[in-house]
Design a protein around this nucleic acid. Structure first.
Lengths: 98, 98
DNA sequence: ATTATCGCTACGATTTTCATAGCGCAAGCC
DNA sequence: GGCTTGCGCTATGAAAATCGTAGCGATAAT
């Protein structure tokens, strides 16, 4: 991995992968087990979910807590905060499109 | 498409598609022609670029301005503002990972 | 021993993304 | 007119990502 690649590009590549944002979003309130997460995402394929969890773990955004399931790390929670305004924006966007 | 689907889910589906965030990001400062946009994204396939531009246009985030190329709409620019803190966060994230 | 739940892997089918070639059009030039 | 140049974009087949489904091994309760 090139080290001088802009951070924003690196994170865009991760977040731009299908289901990644959704998984973070579903973990916003509580830790979820693998299967709970799977059904929260509408029965996402376990192979894809597993891949995403690995990537998110490698990026230190999500971690597995024994007995608890998967949860956001401190950085993951910070990222979620960055995304918080998106929810607001999305409503305005959807409203204006009708 | 269900209409009562949460706005956030709808936008996540759009933004989670490969290259979508990147395209918005590349249009942050100025309008770009199809080919300029293509090379800004590292010679992205024209078929994919065309698909994304159609989706972004349908979502009213990007529009084609005759003679100018493609540019963010007002909503597109608002969305970019939402994303602005991400850049900052990404640097901190990358720094902490080394 | 049986049942149940969980995390996860295997695998083939479908969908998405890719690289490459090139068409049709408009503008500039000879 | 003919010739190039650059543009937006389509077509096509290959490669990669995603999907749905089945099911294994472990753990725990009955």
């Amino acid at each position: 991995m090139p080290q001088d690649r802009p951070a924003i590009a690196e994170i865009i590549e991760l977040l731009g992968r299908k289901w990644v944002m959704r998984i973070i979003w579903e973990l916003r309130d509580q830790a979820l087990s693998f299967r709970a997460l799977q059904s929260a995402c509408g029965d996402l394929s376990p192979s894809v979910l597993n891949d995403r969890l690995k990537r998110l773990d490698a990026a230190a955004l999500v971690e597995k807590q024994p007995g608890e399931g998967y949860a956001l790390t401190a950085m993951g929670r910070e990222l979620l905060e960055v995304y918080r305004p998106l929810d607001r924006w999305a409503r305005a966007w959807q409203a204006r499109r009708r």
